Measured scan of single mutants.
Amino acid sequence: PDDEWKERLREAEEKNNWKLFEELARKAGVSEEKIEEWKRRWS
């Protein structure tokens, strides 16, 4: 299951679909801290 969400995150990233990325990350149990960090790195 871990690989599956990583794959989906990669797809979201490729499409630059931040909303989807964020949603998937939350569902995968990624901390808000980590998500914010990704946001900063991404923008």
Rank of each mutant, 00 (worst) to 15 (best):
G29Q: 02
S43M: 15
E22Y: 08
W42S: 02
N16D: 09
I35C: 01
W5G: 03
F21P: 00
P1S: 12
L9S: 04
S31R: 03
E4D: 12
R8Y: 07
W42R: 02
W18R: 01
E32S: 07
N16G: 14
N17Y: 07
S43W: 15
E14A: 13
L24Q: 05
R26V: 02
S43T: 11
W42V: 04
S43R: 13
F21R: 00
A12Q: 05
W42T: 02
K19H: 13
S31L: 03
E23T: 06
N16R: 10
E33M: 04
K34L: 14
S43A: 13
E7S: 09
A25Y: 02
E36F: 05
E7F: 03
R41S: 12
S31G: 04
R26Q: 03
E11D: 12
K19D: 13
E37Q: 03
R10A: 08
W18V: 02
R41N: 14
K15S: 12
D3H: 09
K27L: 13
G29S: 01
D2C: 15
A25N: 00
R10C: 15
E33T: 06
A28Y: 09
R8K: 11
E23C: 14
E13Q: 15
F21W: 12
G29D: 01
E22S: 04
R10Q: 09
E13N: 10
W38A: 12
R8E: 07
N17C: 15
I35M: 02
L24Y: 07
E33I: 05
N17Q: 08
E7A: 11
E23K: 05
W5I: 08
E13Y: 15
R40E: 15
R40K: 14
R26W: 01
L24V: 08
R10K: 12
K15E: 10
K27D: 04
L9K: 03
E33A: 12
S31M: 02
E36Q: 10
N17S: 08
R26H: 02
K27Y: 05
L9H: 04
E33D: 10
G29L: 01
K39D: 01
W5A: 05
A25F: 05
R10W: 08
R41H: 13
E4Q: 12
D3T: 09
I35N: 00
R10H: 10
F21E: 00
K39G: 02
R26I: 05
K19E: 14
R40F: 07
W18K: 01
E37V: 02
S43D: 13
W38M: 13
S43N: 12
S31A: 05
S43P: 11
I35P: 00
W38H: 09
E36A: 08
L20R: 08
E37H: 03
R8H: 08
W5K: 04
N17T: 05
A28E: 04
V30Y: 15
E36I: 04
L9Q: 03
D2H: 09
N16C: 15
D3S: 11
A25H: 01
S31N: 05
W18F: 04
N17G: 08
W18G: 01
W18S: 01
I35D: 00
E22I: 08
N16T: 05
K19P: 14
E22W: 08
R41I: 14
W5S: 06
V30P: 00
K39S: 02
A25K: 00
L9V: 05
R40Y: 06
D2R: 08
E4W: 15
K34P: 00
W42K: 02
E4N: 11
R26S: 02
R26D: 00
E23F: 07
K6R: 12
E7H: 08
P1M: 13
E37T: 01
K27N: 08
L20A: 11
E13K: 15
V30T: 01
E33S: 10
K15I: 07
K39W: 09
E23G: 02
W42A: 03
E37F: 02
W42G: 04
A12F: 11
P1V: 13
A12E: 04
E13W: 15
D3Y: 10
S31Q: 03
E36G: 03
K27H: 07
E14L: 13
D3E: 12
E36H: 04
D3N: 11
R40D: 15
W5H: 05
K39I: 09
N16E: 07
I35H: 00
R8S: 07
I35W: 02
N17K: 07
K6C: 15
W38G: 01
K15R: 08
N16F: 12
K34T: 14
E22H: 03
G29I: 00
D3W: 12
R26K: 06
F21N: 00
K15F: 07
E23R: 02
W42E: 01
P1F: 14
D3R: 09
E14Q: 12
I35E: 00
S31D: 05
A28Q: 05
E14D: 10
K39E: 06
E14Y: 09
E11K: 08
E37S: 02
P1Y: 13
E23L: 05
K19R: 09
N16I: 07
A25Q: 01
K6W: 15
E7L: 05
L24C: 13
K19L: 10
A12D: 04
E33H: 06
E37Y: 04
W18Q: 01
L20Y: 09
A28F: 11
R8D: 04
W18I: 04
D2W: 13
R26E: 01
S43Q: 15
W5N: 04
I35T: 00
L9E: 04
K15H: 11
L24R: 04
E7K: 10
K6N: 09
I35K: 00
S31H: 02
K19A: 14
K27A: 15
R8L: 14
G29K: 01
K34S: 05
K34A: 11
S43K: 13
L24A: 08
D3F: 12
K6L: 14
W5M: 07
E7Y: 03
W38T: 06
G29H: 02
R10S: 07
I35S: 00
L9R: 06
W5R: 04
E11R: 07
V30G: 00
L9W: 13
N16Y: 10
R8G: 07
E23Y: 09
W18Y: 03
E32R: 06
F21H: 01
R8V: 12
A28M: 12
R41V: 10
R26T: 02
E33L: 05
E32F: 03
V30D: 00
E33P: 03
P1G: 11
E36K: 06
E13C: 15
E33C: 09
A12N: 04
R10V: 06
K34F: 11
K6G: 11
K39H: 10
E32C: 12
D2G: 12
E37K: 02
K34N: 06
E22P: 00
R26A: 02
E32K: 06
W42C: 14
E13G: 15
P1R: 11
R10E: 06
L9T: 04
N17M: 09
V30K: 01
R8M: 12
E14W: 09
L20K: 07
N17P: 03
P1W: 13
K15A: 12
K15V: 07
N16S: 07
L9F: 13
L9I: 08
K39R: 12
R8I: 13
K15Y: 05
K39M: 06
K39C: 07
N16M: 08
R26C: 04
N17D: 14
E36M: 08
K6D: 09
W5Y: 05
R8F: 09
A12T: 04
R41M: 15
R40W: 08
E11S: 08
L20F: 11
E36P: 00
R40T: 12
D2E: 11
F21V: 05
R10D: 05
K19S: 12
E13T: 13
V30H: 04
E11G: 06
E22L: 10
W38K: 03
N17E: 08
R41K: 13
A25P: 00
F21D: 00
K15P: 03
P1T: 12
G29M: 02
K27Q: 12
N16K: 11
R41Q: 15
E11H: 08
E23P: 00
K27S: 11
R8W: 07
S43G: 14
L20Q: 10
L20S: 07
K34G: 02
E4T: 11
K39A: 04
A28D: 01
G29P: 00
E13S: 14
K27G: 06
A28R: 06
F21Q: 00
K6H: 11
R26L: 05
W38Y: 10
G29E: 01
R26M: 02
E4V: 11
K34E: 13
A25W: 06
K34D: 13
K19Y: 11
E7I: 08
K39V: 03
E33Y: 05
K19F: 10
A25G: 00
P1K: 10
W42F: 12
E4F: 14
E7T: 09
E37P: 00
W18H: 02
E7M: 06
W42L: 06
V30R: 00
G29W: 00
K34C: 15
W18C: 09
K27W: 07
E22T: 04
E33V: 08
L24N: 03
L20W: 14
S43F: 15
R8N: 06
N17V: 06
K39P: 00
